[in-house]
Design a protein around this nucleic acid. Structure first.
Lengths: 234, 234
DNA sequence: CTCGTTCTTCATAATTTCTACACATTGAGC
DNA sequence: GCTCAATGTGTAGAAATTATGAAGAACGAG
């Protein structure tokens, strides 16, 4: 890979920004901080970081504007930080061009995990997060925009958790996820239950999207580890 | 690599500490417990655990002080336990040098997951593991991301233990491993069986990844000692 | 409060994987 | 070449992991 990983952190709350700084530095990143949108744009021009972590809610120029502005001239990976209540705007966040989002409050572990994942994806041949992704000649369609999944053209009506789990895996095709990772990313890190819930959700998803749930093509079991989206067909 | 994982649990509530003890022991940790800050510092000096779980709120010396004190002389991973309402102080916690925090009340699963993650991150710094390593012009590919191994492009479907053993050896190419080392690193230190299991696993791995299992190129026998990954060809 | 949906847990079945053992083969040292 | 110890290999029962169906909890809408 390239030189050192670097991140530009944009957050108006200085405390939080400093916290993030220490974590990213620990993980081996060069860290730059901006406390406002205009600062962010400036910093971006001068430093061209390999990753940007951007707070959505900021006084003055909003995260959304910053994101759009940067997207006009660069495809640098951007992770949005959003408050829980803004789940709606999260969706818009993707529309704006963010590569991932992390809801506040977040754990550093989670943020770093996603940062690494986003960078990995960016450095590999990038699989863009599209509004709509189609597999197997349209047999299966993941529609981010309408927030639904279609099998042979009909909406299969996934439940919210099923949708989250599927999209989490689909966002990083072929990556093998442990059950705990899926819980953290798709069910929320405050989930306190048994990790085998994932099995049940996967079973239900398979019933809805697989042509033959007994020999699944989309959600593949990784024995001893967990599951992954995309098997040999991808 | 290290011996057994060990954890120092610091919490003034003895009941909670004992609950954590049983979970960590189940997960294969050596557990030490301290019920106050001063006890914690003492225990740390004597035992040098590989991980510390530290309650933020304690009578007497606070978790914050303990953390700062330990940080002055060691970079051992520290996980802070914090009450939900203390989200503010949580953030400061990071500034102090904790590696992660877990809000109370927490589930054991969550705590263990983070403990493993923190330890993995700490040890991963030493020897980074690439997502994908290719040998012999792509004949053999070790794919950490997909958690699979490919021979001439096709997934050879290693079992979990086979995968662990191979990856353990591949992490240090040409290093000769004894059977006991491989058992510790790849099968888990709680394994109680016969060390010749390794032979069987190696046999099965060879059948899957070697072009001619009779004269292996990848996993080489070191007579009288054990095995190593990478022979004269590397 | 009641109903319907979704989420989670649990019991059990199906599948895969692990381990031990017996026997064959190989290699080192003499 | 001979001998002994170490390694290679096939098999089968034991153990672990995953799949599945069903039932109880939690949640929300009306």
């Amino acid at each position: 890979m390239s030189a050192k990983k670097s991140v530009l952190i944009v957050d108006d709350e200085k405390k939080i920004a400093e916290v993030m700084r220490s974590y990213f530095e620990n993980a081996g990143y060069d860290v730059e901080i901006a406390h406002s949108g205009t600062e962010a744009i400036n910093a971006f021009e001068h430093r061209t970081p390999s990753l940007i972590v951007l707070d959505l809610m900021m006084p003055g120029m909003s995260g959304e504007e910053v994101c759009k502005t940067i997207r006009k001239r660069s495809c640098v990976p951007i992770i949005m930080l959003t408050a829980k209540s803004e789940e709606e705007s999260v969706l818009q966040g993707f529309g704006i061009g963010a590569d991932d989002y992390v809801p506040k409050p977040f754990s550093p572990r989670q943020l770093l995990a996603r940062a690494d994942a986003v960078l990995r994806r960016a450095s590999a041949d990038a699989v863009p997060v599209a509004d709509e992704i189609s597999y197997n000649d349209g047999e299966l369609v993941l529609d981010n925009l309408r927030h639904e999944v279609r099998k042979n053209g009909v909406n299969v009506r996934l439940t919210p958790k099923e949708y989250n789990i599927l999209m989490t895996m689909a966002r990083y095709p072929t990556k093998a996820f442990t059950r705990d990772e899926l819980i953290d990313f798709a069910l929320g890190s405050e989930f306190a239950g048994f990790d085998r819930v994932i099995d049940t959700h996967v079973k239900n998803i398979r019933q809805k999207i697989e042509t033959d749930p007994k020999s699944p093509k989309y959600i593949i079991t990784v024995h001893g580890l967990g599951y992954r989206f995309g098997g040999d067909i991808l």
